[in-house]
Design a protein around this nucleic acid. Structure first.
Ligand SMILES: O=c1ccn([C@H]2C[C@H](O)[C@@H](COP(=O)(O)OP(=O)(O)OP(=O)(O)O)O2)c(=O)[nH]1
Ligand SMILES: [Mg+2]
Length: 516
DNA sequence: ATACAGACAAG
DNA sequence: CTTGTC
DNA sequence: GTAT
């Protein structure tokens, strides 16, 4: 019946391993060749079979076969079809037409917008109610940034109105932490966030970027979203997300998310990527090998690297956020150790702690010395010291011994805590330490204080101004070809955090206003 | 077509 | 170089 | 996924 036809069956959704075995056997008997693994440079397959609830896109995205794209040679001329088709064919003892069984194609995307040329709602030029997204380049290019670049070629590009950047706004000025400007939009924000999380366990960071950005835009939107068009008028919301947002607004649900959430391989991907040291690629590989649970991982130490073993050991502790008081205790332990190793060191907890968050995922400690020299070689001594006292229990990343290492990522545990019902061991906590030369203090502080989003926004702004910002310094006179640096530029003198903001032309924001 | 931040460690 | 993390 |  299927003589010589090459099939691949995707295990996902309602298609279980067991079912694949049965179906494969039946198909083979009917003359088909069932491929169990798609490799890029093999004979192209004829049929990609999967649960009917998936689209072609989902198949590629969540497939355990890595590096598959729509135009991979193996997929040339391949049909994406629901499992229902071969099942029906076998039952009917004949090859049925598969028109009715095709999975949703990749190209339902085709220009749904005939972009009205002079549409006044075209993203920029909105009513002033919401002017809050970055890279929303307004034509009124003011903001002749005080000390900013003199690079002639760069100044030809319109500098964005700095006020439109995230890093120029206080995180307090917009909806309070985990709230929404308009309660009616809460579902939308929540669901877009869940979509971002879900895609977070795939390799598609730009999709995640967009979902997050759209969620932010909706969060800041002060009126209920009452039409598809009003959704698409939001910055960062295009045609596809507008559809999804509108679906949520009407029904309170998103079929796409319901579908993905109910899939066990997607759940496994999320579980695995929540393990420290495992990202989307590794998670995908484990799922492809049939692993689904932490117990499965524990039974296969050969598949785990050193860091992942530590991650597994402390799986629950690492997912748990500590009260800021505990972060304070940890900072004190580190500070005391540093001060035993020398005088005059600056020791400062940054990250979410410095931003004033009530709870912290880890403790990020920055160490420097005003004399500009004593920082050298400190980190090794510090780690050794803290290890001896039993405070540090595991090392995730410590630059071995090239003398001038700067970063340490590890695990610590505070001494027994005594409460009314006796003594109890405390949780293991993630501890990050950086030791930096004093001339890099300001930029390190900006970097290490975050938030991540705030940092990225600041760096993006710097780039648009012909500058460059990293944890070491702010550089001016940077020349790029596209995104590639041609000339690295020269470091700007930045004695303190405020000077970094100044050079970028944005108002200074204290740490608690950087919690974006 | 290209950018969406930029760096560093592990292996 | 890829992967993962800050 | 979106914007330029
Ligand atoms: O991709 C990243 C991740 C982090 N950081 C900076 C900002 C961040 O604030 C700091 C510390 O990282 P961490 O992951 O500890 O974030 P946090 O802001 O402290 O949050 P949490 O409470 O989860 O630790 O490092 C970045 O610049 N880029
Ligand atoms: Mg932190």
């Amino acid at each position: 019946m299927f003589s010589g036809q090459r099939f691949y069956i995707q295990q996902a959704g309602s298609v279980s391993k067991q079912q694949i075995r049965l179906l494969s056997a039946a198909l083979s008997k009917a003359g088909a060749i069932v491929i169990d693994k798609i490799v890029n440079d093999q004979t192209p397959i004829d049929y990609f079979i999967a649960d009917s609830k998936f689209s072609q896109f989902d198949c590629l995205k969540f497939s355990s076969s890595n590096n598959l794209t729509a135009d991979s040679p193996v997929l040339a001329g391949c049909q994406f079809i629901s499992v229902d088709w071969p099942v029906a064919c076998l039952k009917a003892h004949q090859v049925l037409p598969f028109n009715e069984f095709k999975l949703r194609s990749l190209e339902s995307v085709s220009e749904s917008k005939s972009a009205e040329p002079d549409e006044p709602t075209s993203k920029r030029r909105r009513s002033a109610a919401v002017v809050v997204e970055e890279a929303d380049v307004d034509s009124s290019a003011t903001a002749s940034t005080s000390l900013a670049s003199e690079s002639a070629s760069q100044s030809l590009r319109l500098p964005p109105r700095v006020g439109a950047w995230i890093c120029a706004q206080s995180s307090l000025s917009t909806p309070a932490v985990s709230e929404v400007a308009c309660p009616a939009n809460a579902d939308i924000v929540r669901i877009l966030g869940q979509m971002a999380d879900t895609y977070g366990s795939t390799n598609d960071k730009w999709r995640v970027y967009s979902y997050k950005k759209a969620a932010q835009a909706v969060k800041r939107c002060s009126k209920p979203i009452d039409s598809r068009a009003s959704a698409q008028s939001l910055p960062g919301v295009g045609s596809r997300l507008a559809d999804k947002i509108w679906e949520i607004a009407q029904s309170g649900r998103l079929a796409k998310l319901d579908c993905l959430s109910s899939d066990e391989t997607v759940a496994a991907l999320k579980l695995f990527t929540s393990l420290w040291g495992a990202g989307p690629v590794t998670a995908q590989a484990w799922v492809a090998q049939g692993l689904r649970s932490l117990d499965d991982l524990a039974s296969r130490p050969d598949l785990l690297n050193r860091q992942q073993k530590i991650g597994l050991k402390h799986y629950d502790d690492f997912l748990n956020r500590m009260p800021r008081s505990e972060a304070g205790e940890i900072e004190s332990v580190v500070a005391e150790a540093v001060h035993q190793l020398g005088n005059g060191f600056i020791v400062q907890a940054c990250g979410s702690y410095r931003r004033g968050r009530p709870d912290c995922g880890d403790v990020d400690v920055l160490v420097t010395h005003p004399d500009g020299r004593s920082h050298a070689g400190l980190l090794t001594r510090l780690v050794t010291h803290l290890e001896r006292t039993g405070f540090l229990t595991d090392h995730l990343v410590s630059c071995e011994e090239n003398g001038d290492h700067k970063k340490y990522l590890g695990v610590c545990r505070l001494p027994l805590s005594t409460n009314n019902s006796g003594q109890s061991e405390r949780r293991a906590r993630r501890l990050d330490i950086i030791v930096v030369p004093y001339n890099e203090y300001a930029c390190s502080l900006v970097y290490f204080t975050g938030s991540e989003h705030f940092c990225r926004s600041l760096r993006h702004l710097a780039k648009r101004l012909g500058m460059s910002l990293n944890e070491h310094a702010l550089y001016e006179g940077v020349i790029r070809r596209g995104a590639v640096k041609v000339n690295p530029g020269r470091p700007v003198n930045t004695p303190d955090e405020a000077s970094v903001f100044q050079h970028l032309g944005v108002p200074y924001r204290p740490p608690n206003e950087r919690d974006h």
